[in-house]
Design a binder for these strands. Structure first.
Lengths: 136, 136
DNA sequence: CACCTATGTAACCATTATAGTTACAATTAA
DNA sequence: TTAATTGTAACTATAATGGTTACATAGGTG
């Protein structure tokens, strides 16, 4: 199961996109997400590292680095996921066995295809799409 | 990240599909996967519960309940995954906030679509496809 | 029947990821 | 100068995962 950082990150970015800069502090965001401000800052740090938002010490709030329509959900997903592979593999299958010898490359390929299908779907939706859906 | 039970389950079923029944004991499978026999039996139990294979106490080995071409990777995936949802959500966002109030339903929809894209890909491949890929 | 072997589980442990929390240095703005 | 905020480090609790030991139960064979 994929962690909730992805969901929280979308929540954060939605608030930053909406709010007047002065208001969207980690404290304020934490109130909306219903968690601790440090959890927000941790995720904000990841989003910042990925180049999706800007902020600085001493200055309250944060701003997006580009238009919400130009931020895909895949951008956000990749920003908060440290593992680049979705499916785990078992390590060191027995190379003496025909199955053990070949299973990894077979799975690698298959898993990659499945992961790509999901990511393609995420790439097709933007932060703006989420915002639009919320204001309906 | 999705656990390795999925990969191990495919490995197990590949061996069961190939092997002469008498040989594919949990001990033998464990040797190929390179893990403990109990881990194998645990996963075998899930596959059995999902109706993908048959086995019984006292009788060594296991057999498939249907043709490898009739077992999709999605069948296997669902058999060993206890959570039916791929993406986690943060609980109890603040209903006082417009974003907090509407984020969940918006995400539920979006996440479901992405998950479905992945599952559809898994549904399109069978155990036999994996076996074929391994014997190339 | 007696013995061996294998499955099916329960129980326990170590490791890891996750999310929450406290604490504090650094920085900005009033 | 003071207050507020970001950015981190460090620690904790919880849960999932995979490995392990132990053992009851059930076939199969001499």
């Amino acid at each position: 199961m994929i962690n909730s950082r992805f969901a929280v990150a979308i929540h954060i970015l939605s608030l930053v996109a909406s709010g007047p800069r002065e208001k969207v502090t980690s404290e304020y965001i934490a109130g909306s997400v219903n968690t601790n401000p440090v959890v927000i800052r941790r995720i904000t740090g990841m989003l910042k590292k990925a180049g999706l938002l800007q902020s600085q010490v001493g200055t309250p709030g944060a701003v997006l680095t580009r238009d919400p329509g130009e931020i895909s959900l895949l951008d956000i997903y990749l920003a908060v996921q440290e593992k680049e592979v979705l499916f785990s593999m078992h390590e060191n299958p027995n190379p003496q066995c025909p199955v053990g010898k070949n299973i990894q490359s077979a799975l690698e390929d298959t898993f990659h295809t499945a992961q790509t299908a999901m990511e393609k779907e995420l790439a097709s939706k933007s932060l703006q799409d989420i915002r639009t859906r919320m204001t309906l």
